[in-house]
Design a binder for these strands. Structure first.
Lengths: 111, 111
DNA sequence: AGAATACTGAACCATATGGTTCAGTATATA
DNA sequence: TATATACTGAACCATATGGTTCAGTATTCT
């Protein structure tokens, strides 16, 4: 490891399709562990682990009332993540531009 | 696993700080396995594995000429990834708006 | 030809991940 | 009070991940 970054945790959380689906589901409305377990045909324990990972990454918060734990989105907005990706894309563009300029220059030297 | 998606592979590739640093380094110029190993104080084998993961995710291509393997960026631009994140952020906004509307409505009913 | 360089692959290691089962605990319902 | 519901935690399992070492192979340099 080079150094710690919240990007590590978030990208890892987003790399699992079940977890992305949980986020999308929670976008429609809050849901309990049982709701999610039913929806994704998984044990309560299994879903709880996924929710734990999302919580660790700050993408989900949970609150237990009575015997039901309700999961909702937040507080992270993925701003750092989209910023990193945006920067990467701009860098790619720049490299393309340089390559293009280089190719043009090379072509000009031909008859 | 719910289903396969390229997002799985890419987000997983991006979740490691060394690999993100390799991408950033390759943004400045192409580099050999040895270059990267030196830069990140890692064995050739270790770096080769990371490059393999990036290659698998389509973020890096490599070409071996003589005994040197040169790594460069491409071909993936992270368009799907930024699209997913963008959609997530828009969904979050919407939820916020609904919550806001709900709170306003509730407030109006007070004296 | 001989030596140095650059990578490669197999094997190994410790830890993490994505799941399960099973035996609880706490809460709500009849 | 008894029973059903909802979750929790420990233990386990198979596989993946992030590294290493070591013994090659292929190229290049002297």
């Amino acid at each position: 490891m080079v150094q710690y970054s919240p990007l590590d945790t978030t990208f890892a959380a987003l790399s699992d399709p079940t977890r992305r689906a949980v986020l999308e589901r929670l976008g429609r409305s809050d849901a309990s562990i049982s709701d999610l377990a039913g929806l994704f045909a998984m044990t309560l324990t299994g879903i709880k682990k996924h929710v734990g990972v999302l919580e660790e990454a700050g993408l989900v918060t949970t609150e237990k009332v009575g015997r039901v734990r309700t999961c909702r989105l937040g507080p992270r907005r993925l701003d750092e993540e989209s910023h990193w990706i945006g920067g990467y894309q701009r860098m790619l563009e720049q490299r393309m531009d340089h390559l293009e300029a280089f190719l043009e220059e090379t072509t000009e030297t031909l008859p």
